[in-house]
Design a protein around this nucleic acid. Structure first.
Lengths: 210, 210
DNA sequence: GCATTCTTAAAACGGACGTTTGACTGAATG
DNA sequence: CATTCAGTCAAACGTCCGTTTTAAGAATGC
């Protein structure tokens, strides 16, 4: 447990945002959970909105950086031939899944938070996510174009969004999905989740053109 | 003659819930938009939570009924041979996409609402969705098992959830997606959306076993 | 026509919200 | 030693929240 007030606020805010959403989580609930004074939120961050942005940035920036690193490593290994679709998908999925599962194990269940960021209403979160994701989207659409040159870029863009939605929904609705499955599946094994995601998305990306 | 106050509340609540989410939408915003008295919400419905449930039920019940009708029609046309995956997927997707696009055309943009219901935090919405979806999930997993007998039921369940997430995310993050695509795709054509969804999901369902 | 039920209206309830204030701390600076 | 200054704290600010109350109107049954 960190002793710095700013980090304690970020940690508690992350947990409570994941559990209850952004607008349903009050600053008082956060400061109670973090055991800090209420006014320290507006001292270290300027407002609740800025706190939301800080929570998102702290998680998304390292993940997206890792995604681009893995993607570049793949592209360098295939300088002249189409890179395998499955490897590109792993570069896209693994950094997120590992980050989520790691937090889960550490008692910080941020799974629904990661699942919800694309869907959160309000222009504040949307513009934040847009600026954080545009580089990643461009890089992966380009990579899929190398892997599947016969698929038009517009269709590849559709399919990348579907690949995002698969993961987003799996994390955000994890308790609901596990309940509906009546014990058939569990969403807590990094490699199993990655296998299922990659197998489905690879099939979808290669699917017959509509 | 039943009063139209109740329906006006439902219509306005639906629009504002879709725009701003459930907890960020106040009853005063709803009654102002509907041009009715504030107290009429607690008169016709008992609470805000009950209003949320009523809004969800009014939309989801007809859609899920239509899904099961279309699925049964397909299964009756293939009594002895595996039904085509694409037709099952159309039975799953078309009722939702048509409902959403129809509302969109009528000036009632409920797209983000439909996309967000699986992801909304809080046990109230979750239990509501669970009871509304369990019959549909069971019926479609069974149908996919007929269409793809070589795929284990647990994997089919994973893949049905991925199919849900694709659509969910497409609707909930539609403005974000259209922005990130920089004009490459638009999410307003029923048949185009259905083609893209079905093509990707069919490829994914048929994908190599992980 | 009167009585009863259903529906709307304005106003207020207590509480929770995000934010601001002003006093106070304790270590660092010169 | 006096001063500064980032940080913490309790308290209060005005606003908005979901809900309730009280009363007046509209509809319905006899």
């Amino acid at each position: 447990m960190p002793s710095d007030t700013k980090d304690r606020i970020l940690d508690s805010a992350e947990i409570l945002f994941a559990q209850n959403g952004f607008s349903a989580t009050s600053l008082r609930a956060i400061t109670d959970h973090a055991d800090v004074n209420l006014a320290s939120v507006n001292y270290h961050f300027q407002s609740k909105d800025a706190l939301v942005q800080a929570v998102l940035m702290r998680r998304l920036n390292p993940v997206n950086q890792r995604r681009l690193e893995m993607l570049n490593a793949i592209l360098q290994r295939f300088p002249a031939s189409p890179p395998p679709v499955e490897e590109i998908l792993e570069a896209f999925y693994r950094p997120v899944v590992e980050e989520v599962m790691k937090s889960q194990r550490e008692g910080r269940p941020i799974m629904p938070l990661i699942g919800r960021i694309f869907i959160e209403p309000g222009e504040l979160v949307a513009s934040q996510v847009r600026s954080l994701m545009s580089q990643v989207v461009t890089a992966f659409v380009d990579a899929f174009h190398l892997a599947l040159p016969q698929v038009p870029p517009a269709v590849l863009f559709w399919r990348l969004q579907f690949a995002v939605g698969m993961m987003s929904h799996t994390f955000a609705a994890a308790p609901l999905i596990e309940g509906l499955s009546r014990g058939r599946i569990r969403i807590n094994d990094t490699e199993e989740v990655l296998r299922q995601l990659i197998a489905f998305a690879a099939g979808g990306l290669r699917g017959a053109m509509p």
